[in-house]
């Protein structure tokens, strides 16, 4: 009997291509993780198992400082971005379609489309002017920049969730004497929560991961973990970099896993 549907996994060469993709994707990561546990000083020559590079990284004050800065920036930027994104998502879905709405989508999602290097250069120019005018050179610039490019990442899952939500539920709440604010608090917000959490997580990870804009915007001594790692790679490369990267990877996986379980329980 002939298959009624086109099944791509039944095509010749499918398994080969799939395997090749997986190997290319994961082999470098596996290598990186393995050498994080190397006892020697090389990132290419295995000399036995050890945790020394993790310990060394953890004791490195510059790593500590950069890690804390990264986490603080990511947390604040993701929070503000999620707030703004939630409001933007509500404003663009809880309205009748009007001329210019598509333009607004594009406007909100601008950071996804404009090359990051362009934004980075633009911010560098503007911020350096502001620095001259105000004399302020604190972490505010980094926070502002991260918040801005995190907004679309937070916006997309929230909007998707809002669009999938049954509007009748809000109507039912209003029918049952809930004023608009109560409807939002008691019905819309609880149902939106998985979308908001997803948006926040995504924004958090994106901020944590950013190199290009951070590199351009940061003032002297404002290294985040990625820019610190980039700086280190220009000098001596030891498995300490692998250890930091592995810890970073573990954190990302942990965040995604937590999110997955939180979401599944809700659903």
């Amino acid at each position: 009997m002939k298959a009624r549907h086109f099944d791509i996994s039944a095509q010749p060469g499918f398994a080969t291509v799939a395997m090749l993709t997986f190997v290319l994707l994961y082999l470098p990561i596996v290598t990186l993780v393995v050498y994080a546990f190397n006892a020697g000083n090389s990132i290419a020559l295995w000399e036995g198992f050890s945790l020394r590079w993790f310990i060394s990284a953890a004791q490195n004050e510059r790593v500590q400082e950069a890690s804390i800065r990264s986490l603080v920036v990511a947390a604040i930027a993701a929070t503000i971005a999620t707030l703004a994104a939630t409001m933007a998502a509500l404003a663009t879905t809880r309205t009748r379609p009007y001329r210019g709405l598509t333009f607004k989508y594009a406007f909100i999602n601008q950071p996804l489309m404009v090359p990051e290097i362009v934004t980075a250069v633009a911010l560098l120019i503007v911020f350096s002017r502001i620095k001259v005018w105000t004399g302020y050179s604190g972490i505010g610039y980094l926070l502002a920049a991260h918040t801005a490019f995190c907004i679309p990442f937070a916006y997309l899952p929230i909007r998707a969730r809002l669009e999938g939500m049954d509007l009748t539920l809000e109507r039912a709440a209003a029918d049952l004497y809930a004023r608009p604010w109560m409807t939002f608090r008691r019905v819309t917000l609880p149902l939106l929560r998985p979308g908001i959490i997803a948006g926040f997580m995504l924004a958090f990870v994106i901020s944590l991961d950013d190199v290009v804009i951070t590199e351009f915007v940061k003032s002297a001594g404002q290294e985040t973990l990625p820019t610190y790692m980039l700086g280190q790679l220009r000098r001596v490369v030891t498995p300490e970099i692998n250890a930091i990267a592995t810890a970073f990877l573990a954190l990302s996986v942990a965040i995604v896993t937590i999110f997955f379980f939180v979401n599944r329980k809700k659903a």
């Binding site: 049954d166 039912a172 029918d175 049952l176």
Partner: peptide, 18 residues
């Protein structure tokens, strides 16, 4: 609607899933 002493049974029921 929240100022009318009128309640509705919706076609889709619209029960709050949470």
């Amino acid at each position: 609607p929240y100022k009318r002493p009128v309640n509705t049974v919706f076609q889709s029921y619209a029960l709050f899933p949470h």
